[in-house]
Amino acid sequence: MQFTSVTFDLDGTLVDSLPDLSAACQRMLQELGLPSRSLDEIGRFVGEGMAVLVERCLTFAAPPDAALLARGIAAFRHHYALTNGTLTRCYPGVEEALQAWQATGIAMAVVTNKPEAFTLQLLEKLALTPFFPVVVGGDTTPQRKPHPAPLLHACAAMERAVAGNLHIGDSRHDIATARNAGCAVYAVPYGYHGDEPLRADECDALVADIATALRLAQLPAR
């Protein structure tokens, strides 16, 4: 089909943000007097939004109580605001691929579970803001992915029908979001999707990277 818009997940799809997320988590844990977490552990915790990341970091023998979780979220917000974009880098070829996507004239947006303020901060630091007139964060709508609301909100903001949208992400939450919204979904095999690799039969296509996704989508340059 001819796609009229494309939505990209951010962390694990366009950028490797794990070093900054890990640094903020470690500083949060240190501030709270709790044991540190490994980079691999934190990588498995990423993908469902800030509150879930913090809760998983604070879950040792048992989940944190409400008071500890609130302290953890506040501490993480403080530390991540200082680290966001410091060590985060685009995956190889992302900038060039986004330029190629943009050259087709297709409407483009970011749809992520990262809070909107942190998303805008990171896009600005990595010089990705010009690619995305529409940005939907994990707190832009009342629900976050895999609920369809963020993706539907992005399509409405782009003034495009969701049926003509292609969503590209790195996790089963991205796949579920697209399925719930009623649009096509391509998945990349890298990123943050837990211990079980994504399979081609779970999505419309498993692509090596977002440049490959563009070739598969067969969008001509303007």
Rank of each mutant, 00 (worst) to 15 (best):
A107G: 02
E55F: 10
A211W: 01
A154S: 13
C183G: 11
G194F: 09
A213R: 02
F76M: 02
R89C: 14
L214H: 00
D139Y: 01
V46Y: 02
G137P: 08
G72Q: 03
R215L: 13
D65R: 04
A75W: 02
L69T: 09
T104G: 10
L53W: 10
H147A: 15
T212D: 15
A97P: 01
L216E: 14
I73N: 06
L219E: 02
T7P: 06
A100E: 08
G164L: 07
L32G: 00
A217G: 04
A117C: 11
F45P: 00
A117Y: 11
R144G: 07
E124K: 10
V188Y: 06
P146S: 02
L122F: 03
H173T: 15
L53A: 04
L98I: 01
E196R: 12
Y186I: 05
L128P: 08
L21C: 08
P146H: 04
L216G: 08
V6F: 04
T88R: 13
V6T: 10
L98F: 00
G194L: 09
A61S: 15
Q30V: 15
P64K: 10
R37E: 06
G194T: 03
C183D: 08
T86D: 14
L166S: 03
D65L: 06
F76P: 06
I210M: 05
A75Y: 04
L128G: 13
R160N: 08
C90H: 05
N84Q: 10
A67L: 15
L122N: 03
L122H: 01
T83K: 15
E116W: 05
L219D: 01
D174A: 04
N180Y: 09
E55N: 09
P133Q: 09
C90R: 02
P189S: 10
P19I: 15
K125P: 06
L152M: 09
A211Q: 06
A23G: 12
A211M: 02
A163D: 13
G138Q: 05
Q30E: 15
H79G: 06
D40M: 14
A61P: 12
Q99Y: 05
L34F: 05
E159D: 15
C57E: 01
A149Q: 14
F8P: 04
Q26D: 11
L216M: 14
T119N: 03
G138P: 08
D20A: 11
V15L: 11
R222V: 10
L166Y: 00
H78K: 15
T4A: 14
Y192I: 04
A156N: 05
G182E: 06
D139K: 02
Q102V: 04
N113K: 02
T129V: 13
V6H: 07
D201H: 10
T4Y: 13
G105D: 03
S5I: 00
V110L: 05
L53S: 03
E196P: 07
G164T: 07
A221P: 09
M28G: 08
L87Y: 13
T13S: 03
A178F: 05
T129N: 11
M28D: 07
A107N: 07
E55C: 12
T88N: 14
F45R: 00
T86Q: 15
L198F: 08
V207G: 04
